[in-house]
Design a protein around this nucleic acid. Structure first.
Lengths: 232, 232
DNA sequence: CCGGATCCGAATCGATACTG
DNA sequence: CAGTATCGATTCGGATCCGG
C-alpha cells in the first residue's frame, strides 16, 4: 500500500508522506513519551478507529519511525526508532505553534496523560528553569495526574494516574506543591493570568503544599502566544 | 466546515488540525518562498485537484495561516500571515528529517522551482557558509533554474526559470559557476559524493564557470543523513 | 488566462462488531 | 491483548465547466 504520492521529489514532501497521514502525528506524540502497547495507544487516542491505528502502526514501521519490541514474556510494545525520536524538536515546535490557537476546549475534548506530558515539555523553558531553584510539582488535570520534577535545565515527568504502570521509574520524595487545574491552565502558561489570579479565578486549586511555588511553575512553563519561537 | 476533530485539548493536536490536512503543508511550503497566485500554486503542485486547493486555501485563511492580497489592479495572491511564517523553522526541520528517506525519484516525481528553493534553504548551513568566501551559484535541475547567492551566513535565492516573473528582485552580476544537476545532487548534499566525484559520475554537469566553487557549495549545503539535527 | 465551482467515481476514514 | 472484518459516511482525485 504505497502512500498516495504527491509526485514531488523533495524532503518536505517525503516527510509529509511518511508522517502526514491522519492520526500519525498523535501516535508519534504518545510514543514520544515512552513505549506503548496497542491498547495503551487506544486509551490515549480514544477516538481513533482500531483499523486506522493498526494501519498507521504498520506504515510507521515501514517508514522506520516506529518499531515493535517484546514486553515481558508475552505482550509487545511499540516504540520510536532513533529516526522517529529525531522528530522530537519538530513535535515540540508544532505544539508551541498550535498553542495560541487552542481556544476553549470543546465539550468532547479531553486531556490525556501523554498529551499533557508533551504539553509540559512543549512549554518547558530550560533557560528560565536553570535560573530558578529546583522544583517538584504534582499536577492534576481531570483524571490525569503527573509529577514534574525540574532540576536546573532538566525536566522529568512521571505519570501517576490514571495509568502509572509504565512510568519510567518510581518517583521518590514529596512534591513541593500539589495542585489541580482546568483547561484555563493555558492562561497561566501564556502569561494572561498570574498564578495568584488563576487561584482566585478558580482555574487552579492548591491541594497541598506551597502556593508560591507556582510562581516558579509559571516562569518555567511558558509559551508566549505572539513570539515566534525558534524550534531549538 | 469544522475540521474533523481529534477530540483532544492539546497544542500539537491543534496544530495538526490547522495544517495537517492533505496538501496543506505543501501549499505552505510554496508560499514560504513568496506570495503566489492560485494558478501559480496549481503549477507548483501539478497533482493537486483544483477543488482541494480551493478548500485548503479557505481553511488556511480561516486558521490565520494564509491571507489573500490584491496584486496589481486585478489579480490576487495568497501569502502567509506572520503566524504562518512562524512555521518556517518547522518546515525546514521537516525537510531535513525527510531528506534521508528520499531515495530515488519515482518516474512521475518532479522538482519544482519552489520545492527546490525550499530544499536549498533546508540544506543551508549558515555557520559553515559564514566561514567561507561569498559564492554565487546558478543551478539547473530539469526545467528549473535558480540563482543562489551566499554571502556570509546569508542566503538569497531567485528563481530564473521556468517562471521568473515573481522573483523577489532582479539579480545582478554573473554567477561564479553555472551547473546542471540531476536528482543525484542529493548525494552531494549528503556527502556521499564529493563534487568532483559527482561530475565524474555525470550527476553534475558544469555549464560554465569555476568547478572548484562546487566544493564551497557542498560545504554550504549539507544534510548529514545520520545526525539528529535540532530544528534551530 | 485567472480563479475558482460542480459533478462523480474511487479511495479512505470512522464506527462497530468480531476473533485468535 | 492485539488486532481483522465489515460497511456506511466522508473525503479525495480527476475532469469538466463557468463567469470575469
Amino acid at each position: 500500500m504505497a502512500a498516495r504520492s504527491y509526485g514531488q521529489y523533495c524532503g518536505i514532501t517525503t516527510a509529509v508522506e511518511l508522517i502526514g497521514e491522519r492520526w500519525a502525528m498523535l501516535i508519534i506524540r504518545d510514543l514520544m513519551v515512552g513505549a506503548r502497547r496497542y491498547t495503551d495507544l487506544q486509551r490515549g487516542l480514544p477516538k481513533i478507529p482500531s483499523n486506522i491505528l493498526s494501519t498507521r502502526l504498520k506504515e510507521l514501521q515501514e517508514a522506520g519511525v516506529v518499531r515493535r519490541a517484546p514486553l515481558y514474556r508475552t505482550g509487545l510494545v511499540y516504540e520510536l526508532t532513533a529516526y522517529g525520536r529525531q522528530l522530537e524538536p519538530i513535535l515540540l515546535a508544532l505544539g508551541r505553534w498550535g498553542f495560541p490557537k487552542m481556544g476553549e476546549p470543546g465539550p468532547d475534548d479531553l486531556v490525556t496523560a501523554d498529551s499533557l506530558t508533551m504539553a509540559l515539555r512543549t512549554a518547558f523553558r530550560p533557560d528560565a528553569a536553570a535560573a530558578l531553584p529546583a522544583a517538584d510539582y504534582e499536577l492534576h488535570v481531570g483524571e490525569v495526574a503527573l509529577r514534574a520534577q525540574v532540576d536546573r535545565s532538566d525536566l522529568r515527568i512521571a505519570q501517576l494516574a490514571p495509568n502509572p504502570a509504565l512510568s519510567p521509574a518510581a518517583v521518590v520524595g514529596d512534591p513541593d506543591v500539589v495542585f489541580a487545574a482546568g483547561p484555563g491552565i493555558r492562561l497561566v502558561i501564556s502569561g494572561e493570568l498570574t498564578p495568584a489570579e488563576a487561584i482566585d479565578a478558580g482555574v487552579v486549586h492548591i491541594i497541598s503544599g506551597d502556593a508560591t511555588v507556582l510562581e516558579r511553575f509559571a516562569e518555567t512553563f511558558h509559551i508566549d502566544p505572539l513570539e515566534a519561537r525558534s524550534a531549538a
